[in-house]
Computed example of a mutant assay.
Amino acid sequence: MGVAIRAAGEGDRELVVRLLDAAFQDDPVSSWVFPGTEYRRETHHLLMGAFADIVLEEGWIDVTEDDTACALWMSVPAEPHDDGGEGFAQVRAAVDPANARIEQIGLLTGDVHPVGRPHAYLWMIGVRPDRQGEGVGGALIGSVLERCDREGRPAYLEASSARSRSLYERLGFRLLDRPLDLPDGPRMWPMWRDPRD
């Protein structure tokens, strides 16, 4: 599938937030972090905004030229900086101080994130709901995976649904160790992809 992709800039922040908010409204992990439909609709976009800000500053965001999908990537060194969870606490304080799950999800995924080898980290990918299932997400991820293959660099992500896990498996990702079961919540799948020759 031919999908034109561009690098997002500061002027794309609101687009990215809208895409992520719409794409993850019914996601099992978002529903766990923000239980209750009304609460999620009122608050979820704030967390997506915090994520967009972090990645715009420290990583990169790819957006399709038709503005229907975005992917948030970070370049992780072999020994990433460990702030003791302070960053997750700051996100919680900025987004919704009363919601401990905002900080908890960061700590839990941080605990399973692999160390010791530099890699590209797909933090999130959001496809507008009316375009999901058309191959847009796979094409968006595929462009970075091609670069990873050329550079001999692995990639990592956490799948937040069985549907997304299936897509990532088709792209060459495999379960890293074991699934991450959120307390009284859904399952996530930490997934690793070695570069292809």
Rank of each mutant, 00 (worst) to 15 (best):
P183Y: 02
H45S: 13
I61Y: 04
H45W: 14
G2W: 14
V16P: 02
R153M: 12
A69F: 05
E38G: 10
A8F: 08
G185I: 00
P118Q: 14
W73I: 05
G172N: 00
W60S: 15
V95C: 06
M74S: 12
L46Y: 08
A69L: 04
D12T: 10
E79M: 12
I141F: 00
H119M: 05
M191Q: 05
R128T: 06
E38C: 02
V91D: 01
P190E: 09
G49L: 06
L122C: 12
V127Y: 03
S164Q: 08
N99V: 07
W73G: 01
G106K: 06
L47M: 14
P80F: 06
Q25H: 14
T43E: 12
L108Y: 07
Q25D: 15
F173L: 02
A89G: 12
R193F: 00
L72S: 05
G9V: 05
W60F: 15
D184A: 11
D96K: 03
F24V: 05
H113G: 01
S30N: 10
G87K: 12
T64L: 05
I5F: 05
R18C: 07
H81S: 15
E158T: 04
R163L: 12
A71Y: 02
V127G: 01
R6K: 15
L180R: 09
V55K: 03
D111Q: 13
E134V: 00
R13C: 06
S30D: 07
W60Q: 15
